[in-house]
Design a protein around this nucleic acid. Structure first.
Lengths: 357, 357
DNA sequence: TTGTAAGCGTTATCAA
DNA sequence: TTGATAACGCTTACAA
């Protein structure tokens, strides 16, 4: 182990290029074809002694085949393309993490393309990635750029959608069971004595997960209303920087509740944080005065205010399953598109504990 | 625009393979070489009319060259390898985001490899990535796997280190100015009247950024002590799950402070959160009873307790610069290894406001 | 200015 | 069982 520092800036003088299959063939005194056979069919087709000669040559030269060349020849690259609407989103990262792990374990590498919330670039992303011969896509995007993902499919590449469906594209879909999760949260608030419920999400537009959550909330309220006197439910879409509007919505909520208890159900961590801030501005205390349950169980949830009650998504598992689904498709499995919905888990903390009346 | 749903599961019947350079050549009635010249030297070497013929053929077939084939031939892949110790770490993700953007703008794609905090796999990561002919590396890793990155360098691939230096490897290094940042935070606490200071970090081992922060803290205290009566500074390394130890350290801090004011400087967001939890357990109030300034300005910092004072890192810029540095090296720039240190910014919030004495 | 042909590192087809 | 040889899609001498 040398103690001298190795310098990255100084280009090393062409020391060691990677060994190629030709080098191995030469070293073993066989043809390239034989080496290739050894690598791909191991012992199947080779005589014992030749196999051994190749084996030692491979070891001696620390040879490993070039995936690039393999990709060129076979058309398969062991690459998977992951397109994310926004890497800043903790949800996306959590999923990414699970997916990346599963891919690695299956011998695939991930090529990452972040849209930076610019949905126009989806097509660009998919094209760049197909150019690199990725064998399939994991998409956590809007699908706004109509036909971008459809193109991938047309190229014959399998696609798995995560969290967000694309219109006009039926592909495998992996996501939280949004309806169930909403019921979980809303039911919990109801049981806690909160009667005036407000669902707050970012602008729904065509984001399928937001649509589903909003719809599930409406459904829950209309189903539960008959048996629960005074139960009221409202929805509010809050634009990312419209804090005034948010304040106003919460103020109205407090008013409507009268002597009853108001509570908020937020559709993701970003909104949750904004609601917390707004309540602070309005001087409304979490839990005792206004209940709160939010989607996404972040590492900071326990420490905000009296602790934030949340609906935890199994993000790691979502990513893992998305990757596994995709790899199955890549391996040729033919089945109608699947929907895999995982359940959320309710994490109860102070923000949904009303003071006893 | 068809309204029929496109199905991913059903393999499309070999509709359209990507056009190759041969297709274009045939369509334009020229040789492959001519097409290649058109693409790489545009008009330089081509007669007007042939150039046009090629141009329309390229457009008609929507041809774009295969990066894989180019990589094989040229040895350059337009790929950059990004190895991260832990994608779960918000800091890493923030940097990743900046880097990815810069790479995309420069026409590079990112191949991601996450170590999942298993530093043994660094070699594996670098080898997998070199196999794909990545042109260089951005490393946010421990460098524990001695020689893994050195190998990359030996392969002649440029390397940029982010946040963490590797021993025995002198490469471009992009990071926060840790010393300056620590001074910023500690000075702020001092000015706020806090006298008994405790620096808390995760186990330092060989993580260079942690070492630097701890050293800077010690230096600050010994420099400032003479002019500031009663100033005391201590350091504590807290193992990730040793909450009892952390509680004890904070209890002692409170004791040592006596009638004076104790404060904590935490070395990253994870520790910050654990300290917040511990203080809550001990019934010590943030700001008024115990001051707190933490590294990393997260989106939740304003909403924990009275608001958390933090030292914000310019993560986006760090990632961007790392990528740009690397790309310069890839393009052949020869210079001794550079260090680029960016300044942190202090975000003052409630956790560092003592009640007036 | 253009075309021919070799080669990048593989795998697959054919003979031997 | 093994070895030539021709692809895969591209670039680049070298010829013309």
């Amino acid at each position: 182990m040398s103690t001298r520092k190795i310098t990255s800036a100084t280009a090393s003088p062409a020391s060691s290029a990677r060994a190629t299959i030709a080098d191995v063939a030469r070293a073993a005194g066989v043809s390239k074809a034989t080496v290739s056979r050894f690598l791909n069919h191991r012992d199947r087709l080779l005589s014992k002694d030749i196999a051994i000669r190749v084996e030692v040559a491979v070891a001696a030269l620390a040879y490993s085949p070039s995936p690039m060349a393999q990709a060129l020849k076979r058309g398969r690259s062991r690459l998977i393309g992951l397109v994310v609407a926004d890497v800043t989103n903790p949800y996306s990262v959590a999923v990414l993490r699970g997916a990346e792990k599963a891919c690695q374990e299956a011998g695939y590498l991930l090529m990452l393309f972040n849209l930076g919330n610019d949905s126009q670039r989806e097509r660009e992303a998919i094209e760049a990635l197909t150019a690199y011969q990725v064998e399939g896509f994991i998409l956590n995007t809007l699908g706004h750029d109509t036909g971008a993902s459809a193109n991938a499919v047309r190229h014959g590449k399998p696609v798995v959608l995560v969290d967000r469906r694309h219109q006009d594209l039926q592909a495998d879909f992996v996501s939280l069971d949004n309806a169930g999760a909403v019921r979980l949260g809303a039911r919990h608030l109801l049981d806690g004595g909160y009667r005036e419920l407000l669902f707050i999400s970012e602008p729904i537009r065509d984001v399928s997960s937001r649509e589903e959550r909003a719809a599930a909330f409406r459904a829950f309220v209309s189903e539960a209303a008959p048996g629960n006197a005074g139960l009221q439910g409202t929805s509010f879409e809050s634009a990312p920087d419209d804090e005034a509007g948010l304040d106003q919505a919460l103020r109205l909520l407090r008013l409507r509740a009268g002597t009853g208890r108001p509570a908020v159900l937020t559709s993701n961590a970003v909104v949750t944080l904004r609601v917390v801030a707004s309540l602070a501005r309005l001087g409304l205390r979490l839990g005792s005065e206004v209940g709160l349950v939010g989607f996404d169980d972040t590492e900071w949830a326990p420490f905000v205010g009296p602790g934030l009650s949340t609906i935890a998504q199994p993000t790691d598992e979502l990513g893992r399953i998305a990757a596994l689904c995709l790899i199955e498709r890549i391996k040729g499995m033919e089945l109608p598109p699947r929907q895999i919905l995982l359940s959320g888990a309710l994490m109860v903390r102070g923000s949904s504990q009303a003071a006893p009346i």
